[in-house]
Write a protein that binds this DNA or RNA. Sequence first.
DNA 1: CAGCGTCTTGGACGGTCGACCAACACCTGA
DNA 2: TCAGGTGTTGGTCGACCGTCCAAGACGCTG
Lengths: 199, 199
Amino acid sequence: MSRMAAKDRREELIAAAFRVMVREGVTKATTRAIVNEAKMPLGVFHYCFNSREELLQEVLTRFTDRSAEAARKAFQEEGDLSARVCKSLGTFWDGVELSPGEHQVTYELTHYALRQAGFEELARRQYESYLEVHQTLLTEATESEGIRWTVPVPVLARYLNAVLEGLTLCWLVDRNSEDSRGVLRLVGDHLLTFAEKKE
Amino acid sequence: MSRMAAKDRREELIAAAFRVMVREGVTKATTRAIVNEAKMPLGVFHYCFNSREELLQEVLTRFTDRSAEAARKAFQEEGDLSARVCKSLGTFWDGVELSPGEHQVTYELTHYALRQAGFEELARRQYESYLEVHQTLLTEATESEGIRWTVPVPVLARYLNAVLEGLTLCWLVDRNSEDSRGVLRLVGDHLLTFAEKKE
DNA sequence: CAGCGTCTTGGACGGTCGACCAACACCTGA
DNA sequence: TCAGGTGTTGGTCGACCGTCCAAGACGCTG
């Protein structure tokens, strides 16, 4: 194998682990499966990582950041509040249907973290990040649209997060897009009822 | 060990597996952990089950039935529609906070089933059951309250399922009861806006 | 009592896993 | 040039896993 800095190999291993997880699930992402995906000999693994858990930690935080980034990108800037909410939800959902595996893995990682001693904090950070993104976007809308929310923003954020996560999970199982989008419309309209013109 | 019919041992093993999963997670429920929990020698396992997967199948379907039963029980029969919806959601939530482990396992089993070749159908049946319970209860309310829903019942059922599952998942991670109950109130009120007096 | 299903048990097999290590190859700077 | 830090490699270790089996114990029936 051509010589490569340990740092670079770490990144490639993380990317390989990412692919394996999306394709086959978290439990199947063994050290051997990962180095095989990266086309590296097994010995490389523990030269770059102290343990498999260290890799998993890294992957989980990247997934979390990735989700947050995707959510932020889904947030539309143009049009009136109604159009923006509708578009944002639609864009989020397109992402789900486009890459179901990635979303599936985020759930698996959460449950893995909840059961792994010393990993609970990572799961907590994951959901803290989710909620924070929703809060930020809700608050941003407040300023740019000249409205205020008639319900506490943390509650609204949790509501949105719950619906989106629950809906995604259900779709991952039964793939019923039509009803799912119906729910999305329901929630979008519902959200608008909490927006009140300022003054 | 005292003599016992294979059928009875099966039930005890299923119950033991149930306990191990709730306590330590699905992946930790190995054949050895299960027979140990049941205080039986290892050999018993494959005398009662053809494979570990056969046990898991059994446990998953029981969990599914159990959830459906719990949901049906949470459905309140007394009072007007508003009080019933409010009480039902409250009862469901009390169940979540009372036994988080059980709910956590249902998610783990879902994701396990989605990744296991030949098990996808079980996961599908699980969520089909969830949705069906919601539909049934919504339709029941239709008749006993003399109303009709202004939104297709399957969409409403999926909405409820999504919120409850997503909210539970989020709570399992961050244990924020206050905001969770706030969301529940939001959703309860929202649901009522879809009820329309008949004629 | 003998015979025969049913149940019990401890041990063993092959496989996979995370982790580790000694030996070697390479590159750089003194 | 050569010594020492850095990267590479294949093999190996002990642990744990699901599964299987032989040998025997039990209890009913004829």
